[in-house]
């Protein structure tokens, strides 16, 4: 009885966040990800490919204002070489001031934030049929289901069921709450990008790669966190063991 109650306690503690899943949307299937599990780390090549997909496809509408170009070279991330990071940054023009203090533009440096596609929210909505494309900096942490959800959403576009009335300019996606999403299928055909490493850019491959990239962007310290976590857990476990033996030794002669 007591054990049962205890088990219920621990289960309900763990189940509480799960119980508030988003209403009517289809639940995303679990995918195998390279960073799954205690020892899981990112696949460097996948992050680099994912960045290319973001840059070519997503960045047309979605900003990532918490990231700087330098982050692309950070340890635990895509780890582009320094030259490549500089070259990527230099491909963007950012606002600046000239020698006379007048507004001007200059090529971005690795220290600059990712340049967004729209100057402000009104412009973003105007360009997108009234919808606001969310910033993708923390998108994987901000959606129930995380990476599985992002992948399911990207690959889940279908024709709307016959009995469903779609709003003007809306697209059917069973994984999106309500089923109607303003974003058109972003990865609608193969070969939207050409991968430098020769990987074939199928729709599925691009969706997986960009999901990996977005996961890193949401949790750029994931690798550092897991690596340190393994050490901390191992230490704490041994420490607990030592304390337990000390406890047994100490209490051996005390009737209690």
């Amino acid at each position: 009885m007591r054990l049962l109650a205890l088990a219920t306690l621990s289960l309900s503690l763990l189940a509480a966040p799960l119980a508030v899943a988003a209403g009517d949307a289809k639940h995303p299937e679990h995918q195998h990800w390279h960073w799954d599990g205690v020892f899981g780390q990112f696949d460097r090549g996948q992050l680099q490919r994912g960045f290319l997909v973001y840059k070519t496809v997503c960045a047309a509408c979605h900003g990532m204002n918490l990231l700087s170009y330098r982050n692309l070279g950070d340890e635990g991330g895509p780890e582009f070489p320094e030259d490549a990071v500089k070259a990527i940054a230099a491909g963007y023009q950012v606002p600046s001031l000239d020698e006379d203090g007048q507004p001007a533009e200059r090529p971005a440096t690795p220290a600059d934030r990712f340049k967004g596609p729209h100057p402000n929210e009104i412009a973003a909505r105007a360009a997108n049929n009234g919808a606001l494309p969310p910033d993708l900096s923390v998108i994987v942490k901000a959606r129930h289901g995380g990476a599985d959800y992002i992948y399911a959403l990207l690959t889940g576009y279908k024709d709307a069921p016959a009995d469903m009335t779609m709003g003007a300019g809306m697209h059917y996606n069973p994984y999106f709450a309500g089923g109607q999403i303003a974003m058109a299928a972003p990865i609608a055909s193969d070969d939207l990008v050409e991968y430098a490493d020769g990987t074939k850019a199928t729709k599925d491959q691009m969706a997986r790669d960009v999901t990996a990239f977005l996961t890193w962007a949401s949790e750029p310290r994931l690798e550092e966190r897991k690596k340190l976590g393994v050490k901390v857990m191992a230490f704490t476990f041994v420490f607990a063991l030592v304390l337990f033996m000390a406890y047994r030794r100490l209490w051996r002669d005390v009737p209690h």
Binding site: K226, G229, V232, M233, T236, L243, F244, Y247, L250
Partner: peptide
């Protein structure tokens, strides 16, 4: 007697805590 016993319990509790923090 109880610093060691509490210490052991704290270490076990920390294992649960650290699981959430790191993983």
């Amino acid at each position: 007697y109880y610093t060691v016993k509490d210490g052991f319990a704290i270490a076990v509790f920390l294992l649960l805590f650290f699981y959430f923090v790191f993983f």
